[in-house]
Amino acid sequence: MTKDTSRRRGPERRRQDIADLVLHAGSLTAADLAERFDVSLMTIHRDLDELERQGIVRKHRGGVTAQPSGVFESNVAFRMNAMGPAKDAIAEKAAALVEPGMAVMLDDSTTALALARRLIGITPLTVITNFLEAINLLARERDIRLMALGGDYDPLHDSFLGVSCVDAIGALNVDLCFVSTSAVSGGFAYHQEQRIVSVKRAMLEAAVRSVLLIDHSKLNRVALHRVVPLSAFDLVIVDDEAGPQALSEFDEHKVTYELAEM
Rank of each mutant, 00 (worst) to 15 (best):
S69L: 09
T43L: 03
N81F: 11
G63C: 07
V39M: 05
A19D: 06
L41K: 03
F37L: 03
K59C: 09
L48F: 02
I90N: 11
H45Q: 14
R61F: 09
L119Y: 00
A94V: 08
A30R: 06
T110Q: 04
A112C: 10
R118I: 01
R36V: 06
K87S: 12
M105V: 05
G62M: 06
E52C: 13
E35C: 04
R8Q: 04
R58L: 04
A114Y: 03
A91F: 10
H45Y: 15
V98D: 14
G84A: 09
L33D: 05
R14C: 12
L21E: 09
G101C: 13
L28P: 04
H60C: 03
G10D: 03
I56V: 15
A19E: 05
H45I: 09
A114F: 01
P100M: 07
G26H: 04
A66F: 02
G62V: 12
F72L: 10
V64E: 04
D88P: 08
A95Y: 05
A95G: 08
Q67P: 00
D47Q: 03
R58K: 13
A31I: 08
S6N: 14
I18S: 11
L119T: 00
G70H: 12
H24D: 12
R53I: 06
R79Q: 15
N75M: 08
A31K: 08
R61H: 15
P68M: 12
D17G: 06
A77T: 10
V64T: 10
L113T: 00
S109Q: 01
V39L: 13
D17V: 13
I90D: 12
V22K: 04
R61I: 07
L33P: 05
A103N: 05
S40K: 07
G70E: 15
R8N: 08
D107I: 13
A91D: 12
Q16S: 11
K93W: 03
D47Y: 00
E99S: 11
L115E: 02
A94L: 05
K87T: 13
L115C: 03
I44V: 15
L33Q: 10
R61W: 11
D20H: 10
G101T: 14
I44E: 02
A94Q: 11
R79F: 07
I18K: 09
A30L: 13
R7W: 12
P68C: 14
F78D: 00
A30Y: 07
S109L: 06
R8K: 13
L113Y: 09
L41D: 07
V64H: 06
K59F: 06
R36S: 13
D17Q: 15
K59P: 05
S109N: 01
